[in-house]
Amino acid sequence: MQTKKMFSRIPDVISWGIILILLVLTVYPVFYALLGSLKTNAELTLGGSILPKVPQWSNYKKAFIDANFFRYAINSVVISFFTMLISVITSSLTGYVLARHDFFGKKFMISLYGAMMFISIGSVALYPIKLFLQRFGLDNTLLALVLVLTGSQITNVFLVMGFVKGVPKELDEAAKLDGCSIFAIYYRIILPLIRPILGVIALFTFRNTWNDYITTLIMTMSNKSLTTLTVAVVQLKYSVFAAAEWHIMLAGASLAIIPVLILYIFTNKQFISGLTAGAVKG
């Protein structure tokens, strides 16, 4: 019996071994970036120790000043915040109306939204959008960038819709008898009750916006001063830094990674449960 138990442990050991390897491989690139950002360029390119010999905090100073990252960091915060705010507002308004009210063309609207989920022309769509904004002189503005990043929110609308449907209808009706308007029902009754899903939407939108590359790159192409940290960091690859200053590139990359990483440390439970909420309901 004893030997049999030992024998059956072997697959277990192998399995946990694989998990361990996966863990190391998962963490390694991030650690490489964070630790590398504190090394000298020579340490990075010649290889050697995992930890920096003497932490080079000046790399960050250089990234902030030479590469103008301070400005981009502020842009990232402002843009991500407003995109998050507008996303939550627009998707919850529409999701609520679709879940609770009838209007002419509602069926058509829902099926059109559903259909657009499956029609993807990719980032090519940004070209007509950019042209359109230019025609009205709206390009190169913070507002336009935030609105384009907000996007049409199809998945979020459906998420909210599903969630609102789970709220007992009696609550609405009671409020209506009390004289609440449609908007008041949304604001007073529904919003507080669907807060968990709004939190998930906010969290994911913030992450997506902060991390977005292609949309922001294209929308800020002729107005660099609006660019975000992510875009600025990746653009370092095409600058002289790419050749000889890997430490500055990694400092930049870390600057883009650290804020989301901190956010993640505090909210990883919400992130993980939010993902499944989205998957199951959407």
Binding site: T26, V27, Y213, L250
Partner: peptide
């Protein structure tokens, strides 16, 4: 920890 890459920017990590 295993979920962590999901929150990273694909572009920034592409650079790394």
């Amino acid at each position: 920890t295993l979920f962590m890459p999901t929150i990273m920017s694909a572009a920034v990590m592409g650079l790394v």
